[in-house]
């Protein structure tokens, strides 16, 4: 019984690896079904996650922890959107859809836009010529930032070509090397999980 999850992991993982090499239509169909199962599991886990979210914030409200008012907002929003979604659905014109377009759309765009400010402050702090590597990073970053925008061509005609070379040669070489390492690391980690060598995801050493 204790080995049940390990066996499920092994057979599921091994099957999906095998399906990669088997083009038979039945195998591909089974693969598609298994991927759909993953979506179903996710849907149930979402319920579990929502319960955890509710519990955490309810505890903050009942114990009047600092910032508990924000937890009231969170709980109200969770209850409202869940109820509205269940009763009305999420199609165009429903409350959920309208709130999504009015609030979420703009909040998400704003948060993403804040990255521009963070990049500027991070660049100011991090791009300091403290040693050889940092200086190389600094010079490359300056060339890239100028070369990738219209103003680069105004300053020097060769900027776009230099930028393209930097992207095509040293950048691509380093990316490929890192990608090979990551790919092999991913295979190793996945095999450890499938073969049961690493069981920490089950809460066991």
């Amino acid at each position: 019984m204790r080995n049940g999850p390990l066996l499920v992991t092994f057979f599921t993982g091994a099957l999906l690896v095998a399906f990669f090499f088997i083009p038979h239509h039945s195998a591909q169909k089974m693969q598609s079904v298994m991927l759909d199962w993953a979506n179903v599991v996710y849907a149930f886990a979402l319920i579990l996650g929502s319960i955890t979210l509710w519990t955490v914030h309810q505890r903050k409200v009942t114990s009047r922890a600092p910032g508990w008012a924000f937890s009231v907002v969170t709980l109200s929003a969770l209850a409202f959107m869940t109820g509205a979604g269940v009763l009305q659905g999420v199609e165009e014109g429903t409350l959920v859809n309208r709130f999504y377009n009015i609030a979420n759309y703009h909040l998400v765009s704003t948060m993403f836009a804040l990255l521009a400010f963070f990049i500027a402050s991070a660049a100011f702090r991090a791009f300091r010529a403290r040693n050889v590597e940092a200086t190389l990073l600094l010079v490359t970053a300056i060339v890239m930032m100028i070369g990738r925008v219209s103003i680069g061509e105004y300053i020097w005609q060769g900027f776009p070509a230099l930028t393209e070379w930097l992207l095509d040669v040293p950048n691509l070489a380093a990316k490929r090397a890192i990608a090979i390492g990551i790919g092999l690391g991913a295979v190793s980690t996945a095999l450890k999980i499938i073969l049961g060598i690493d069981r920490s995801y089950l809460g066991r050493s």
């Binding site: 690896v17 990669f20 090499f21 088997i22 083009p23 038979h24 239509h25 092999l184 095999l191």
Partner: peptide, 24 residues
């Protein structure tokens, strides 16, 4: 199309299979 595909092995992926076996 996959509906007609009854092959049990994709020969174009033999090199990947060899790589996987080697890794194992």
């Amino acid at each position: 199309t996959p509906e007609l595909d009854t092959r049990l092995f994709e020969p174009g992926r033999l090199n990947l299979l060899i790589g996987l076996v080697l890794f194992l």
